[in-house]
Computed example of a mutant assay.
Amino acid sequence: MSLDQLYQQIILEHAKERHGNGLDAGVEFPAGAASGQSHQLNPTCGDEITVRVSVAGGKVSDLRWDGEGCSISMASASVLTELAEDLDTAELQRIIDSFREVLRSRGKVAADPEILGDAAAFEGVSRYAARVKCAMLSWVAAEDALTQALGRQES
């Protein structure tokens, strides 16, 4: 199996088995947790997503999402959920920044699987400008929700 085929398989699996999908799942937050929520829409294709990030003790205690859209946007949200679990907030921001750099490079920046894990599967998307927004949608929402949660934690 080639690397491209493996990456396609990862995207298809995450599109079917959506990790973290469902904002109303009965998640209990640790004492002192702060959360933020962001809704993002891709007007080009109609994909939309809402991401909620909860932070406690400098770590992501929960990342949940709900949305509708293409396989790329839904799989990207699923992969993000898996990556974000128990990360410290600065590390999540570094991963978001790395993902953004790869996707906006138009194929010039290779994804580092050591940093991005399964999110490296979206490297090929960078060559298709119309699909970059699909893959980035949940990541932009997560970044906004993280900023909100951190702001609430400081208050």
Rank of each mutant, 00 (worst) to 15 (best):
1 M>T: 15
4 D>A: 15
7 Y>G: 08
8 Q>Y: 07
8 Q>P: 05
10 I>Y: 14
12 L>V: 13
13 E>C: 10
14 H>K: 10
17 E>N: 14
18 R>V: 07
18 R>Q: 09
18 R>H: 05
20 G>R: 02
20 G>W: 00
23 L>D: 08
26 G>P: 15
30 P>A: 09
30 P>M: 11
31 A>L: 09
32 G>M: 09
33 A>E: 04
34 A>H: 12
36 G>P: 05
37 Q>M: 15
41 L>E: 11
42 N>A: 07
46 G>Q: 11
46 G>T: 02
48 E>R: 12
48 E>Q: 13
49 I>V: 11
49 I>L: 03
51 V>T: 06
52 R>M: 14
54 S>W: 01
54 S>R: 10
56 A>Q: 12
56 A>N: 11
56 A>V: 13
57 G>T: 13
58 G>T: 14
58 G>F: 14
61 S>P: 05
61 S>T: 13
62 D>C: 10
65 W>R: 05
65 W>H: 08
68 E>M: 13
69 G>W: 10
71 S>W: 05
80 L>V: 03
80 L>S: 00
83 L>V: 06
83 L>H: 07
84 A>M: 01
84 A>C: 05
88 D>Q: 09
92 L>F: 10
95 I>S: 02
97 D>C: 04
100 R>H: 14
101 E>V: 00
103 L>G: 02
103 L>F: 04
107 G>I: 11
109 V>C: 04
110 A>N: 10
111 A>D: 09
113 P>E: 11
116 L>R: 03
116 L>I: 13
118 D>E: 10
118 D>K: 10
119 A>D: 04
120 A>K: 03
120 A>G: 03
125 V>Y: 01
131 R>G: 00
132 V>M: 02
133 K>G: 01
134 C>H: 09
136 M>D: 00
138 S>N: 02
138 S>T: 00
140 V>K: 15
140 V>L: 14
141 A>G: 13
142 A>H: 00
144 D>V: 15
144 D>R: 09
145 A>R: 03
146 L>E: 03
147 T>L: 15
147 T>E: 15
148 Q>V: 05
149 A>P: 00
152 R>P: 01
154 E>F: 06
155 S>K: 08
